[in-house]
Amino acid sequence: MNGTLNGKVALVTGASSGIGEAIALALAEQGAKVVAGARRTERLAALAGRACGEVVPVALDVTGRRSAEAAVAAAVERFGGLDVLVNNAGLMLAGPIEGADVTEWTRMIDTNLLGSLHMIHAALPRLLERRGAVVQISSTSGRIASAASGVYSATKFGITAFAEALRQEVTERGVRVVVVEPGFVTTELTDHITDPAMREAARQIASAIRPLRPDDVAAAVLYALTQPVHVAVNEILVRPTDQSR
Rank of each mutant, 00 (worst) to 15 (best):
T140M: 09
T160E: 08
G20V: 06
T103R: 15
Q227K: 14
A68D: 03
D191C: 05
A36W: 03
G18Q: 06
Q30T: 12
T241E: 00
A218C: 08
T4E: 06
A148H: 15
G150I: 07
R130Y: 04
E169I: 11
R210K: 12
I144W: 05
M92I: 09
A218H: 09
R245W: 07
A224C: 12
T186A: 10
A71S: 12
R126E: 09
A45I: 11
S153C: 14
V12A: 01
A75V: 13
V175S: 03
A73S: 14
T106R: 15
A147S: 11
I159F: 05
K33A: 03
P182I: 00
T186Q: 12
R143E: 06
L25A: 08
I159C: 00
H118V: 11
S146E: 07
T187A: 00
A48E: 03
H118S: 08
L47T: 11
V180C: 06
L85M: 07
R213F: 04
A59I: 09
R107W: 00
T111P: 14
V151Y: 00
T155A: 02
N112P: 15
R43W: 02
E172V: 15
T4Q: 14
A133S: 14
W105K: 13
L128C: 07
T241R: 10
A10S: 08
R210G: 04
C52R: 15
D191G: 11
K156Q: 08
K8E: 01
S141Q: 11
L189D: 02
A161C: 07
T190S: 10
V58C: 08
P125A: 02
V185N: 03
R176H: 07
I159V: 14
E54W: 05
L93S: 06
V178W: 00
L85C: 06
S17R: 15
F162T: 12
G49H: 09
G90V: 10
I205Q: 10
Y152H: 12
C52F: 04
E188N: 13
Y223Q: 15
S141G: 10
R199N: 04
A75K: 14
T106V: 12
I23L: 01
V84Y: 00
A147Q: 10
V72H: 04
Y223L: 14
G99E: 04
A89H: 07
L113R: 13
V86P: 05
S138A: 12
P211A: 04
A218Q: 06
F157N: 06
V56P: 08
R239L: 08
H118T: 13
A10L: 02
N87T: 11
M92H: 10
R66D: 13
I205E: 01
R203Y: 03
V229F: 02
V35Y: 01
G95N: 02
K156S: 02
A46Y: 06
L27A: 05
V72M: 02
P214G: 01
R173G: 01
V34D: 00
T186N: 11
R126A: 06
N87H: 06
A206M: 15
D83I: 07
V233R: 08
S139E: 01
R130I: 03
T4G: 01
H192V: 12
A38T: 13
T190A: 05
A154E: 01
L225D: 05
A123G: 08
A133I: 09
A48T: 12
N2G: 15
